[in-house]
Nucleic acid binder design. Sequence first.
DNA 1: GACGTAAACGGACTTTACCCCGTTTCTCTC
DNA 2: GAGAGAAACGGGGTAAAGTCCGTTTACGTC
Lengths: 215, 215
Amino acid sequence: MDSPLVPFGSPPTERADAARNREVLLCTARAMIAELGADHVTMDGLAERAGLGKGTVFRRFGTRAGIFRALLDAEEQRFQCQVLSGPPPLGPGGDPVDRLIAYGRARTRFLLERHDIARAAFERKGPVPPAVGPNFSRPHIRMLLGQAALGLPDPDTLSLQLASALEGPALLFLVADQPPGGQPPGGQPAGCGENDLGTLLADGWQTLVERIARR
Amino acid sequence: MDSPLVPFGSPPTERADAARNREVLLCTARAMIAELGADHVTMDGLAERAGLGKGTVFRRFGTRAGIFRALLDAEEQRFQCQVLSGPPPLGPGGDPVDRLIAYGRARTRFLLERHDIARAAFERKGPVPPAVGPNFSRPHIRMLLGQAALGLPDPDTLSLQLASALEGPALLFLVADQPPGGQPPGGQPAGCGENDLGTLLADGWQTLVERIARR
DNA sequence: GACGTAAACGGACTTTACCCCGTTTCTCTC
DNA sequence: GAGAGAAACGGGGTAAAGTCCGTTTACGTC
């Protein structure tokens, strides 16, 4: 006896109320982040404001970081699309080194704009943070490094270190430094000052890549 | 009336019992880390085992991460000595590029050996983690980059990114992955497997620096 | 449309970092 | 050695993450 109809959805398919609640929670979380700042969002607060039990929130996302991961994932989807099937130099088709540079520029911007969420997506103890950090960057860099056919002895390790150079500054060594005594809530997304930290990091990345690719 | 005797110690000098308790706490912390693993050390547990009040622990170190920072600081002292006044190639006097390579190798090793403590030294919300991350590496790299007189457009940003490439893998993208179901406590310090991750990272760093310095 | 099952829900409970403030102890001066 | 003042101590209290388990609800079957 084989199952008569299983339209799509690889795992056992999610129940309707579960899916709806996931959406509600995601939306509520987005609203609360915009309103209070990412690190003033608590699980109790989120549950209450969403009109759901705390158990539900944890069932859905596992941990606090899980919510931010989910949020990031959704946005990352679009970013990855541009990288995987958009026009060059970011998308496929161009010179690998140019793609590497374009990728770093785009990624830097992406991370800075979502800096607080990305930081909140880290687990404090768990083994690895899936879907954050170099989990996307590293293999992509690895691939481009391979295509560029520079004579690198160990592209696997190199790609880890380059991913770290790219994402580290935004993810951990940077901070949404509100001016001492400033107001914690709303405001612009951070990392968008007129000093243009984004430009500095993007240019730095380009220098790095050009030097490494130089023959 | 000027103060009659103030032997040394720039700030108002620490009270004797405070200093003693600091030592007790540090020792107890070291013991507990060795015994339980860094992230099974709780503030209550530490206070109790040290025979002190919880309030004392927090007064001394501010936050949980503060304890691990203090522990790391103590060891870092010796490391910094070697870098600042030891023999070349690590210490001063040699070719800046060689020093850069030697520094990265030594630092990689240092971090991998203390990987769990270094991770625990991160604050979960506070602005920056003083005395962890590139707070030492970055300026040192910056200096060597300057001495090497490569024609880099923005050594300040570059040094941040290189510090991130150096410390990131050990600090956040790596995990003391005990084999699934393995015992959490004792054992060797992690990062010392025979696959020699340390060697891979050190070699990767060297490649990176050599490529950047190549003229 | 009633039924059975598995999944989802909810909120009380536990754990842990961190705060507060009355009490104790050190240290300096006379 | 006694007294004053400041620093350190202690532990109960709060907030927030994460767990557990009895109850409810969706969905497929008859």
